[in-house]
């Protein structure tokens, strides 16, 4: 029963993260939804699968959980910094104290790509 609850919660969080990727207005906000609600979803789903007791060996499920928890913040930070520096479109941001520090380009293109497509 506990396993099923964990699995259901995990899948629900993954679905919510995907809906957030569609609905939120700019890349940095989408990243909040995708990387972190997504991690919570996968962690809960893996825990639920391990707790179900239907596997021949479930010990190796801890490895992906640990690995995701260690690397996800690093990946999120790298991706956020990269997309920020590439001059992507940011909605609803009033003041930006980081612009002077890093020299972010002000003249991001209309499309919000910031970089030219190849």
């Amino acid at each position: 029963m506990l396993a099923m609850i964990l699995q259901g919660l995990g899948a629900a969080f993954l679905l919510i993260a995907a809906i957030g990727v569609i609905r939120l207005p700019d890349p940095l906000q989408r990243m909040h939804s995708a990387t972190k609600a997504g991690t919570l979803g996968t962690t809960l789903l893996l825990l639920g699968v391990m707790a179900s007791g239907e596997l021949d060996r479930s010990g190796s499920g801890w490895l992906p959980i640990l690995f995701l928890l260690v690397t996800l913040p690093l990946g999120a930070q790298l991706l956020a910094r990269g997309s920020y520096l590439s001059g992507t479109r940011l909605e609803g941001l009033e003041d930006d104290p980081l612009a002077e520090e890093l020299g972010r380009p002000r003249n991001a293109t209309e499309q919000g790509t910031g970089i030219d497509l190849p």
Partner: peptide
Amino acid sequence: RGPSFADRFVALDMLTAVAVGFAALTAL
């Protein structure tokens, strides 16, 4: 849809998270 590269990479992140979920379901 994009529209920017950053959007696509975020979507890729999301896709791999779902792939991990699918692997777990297959194990189950």
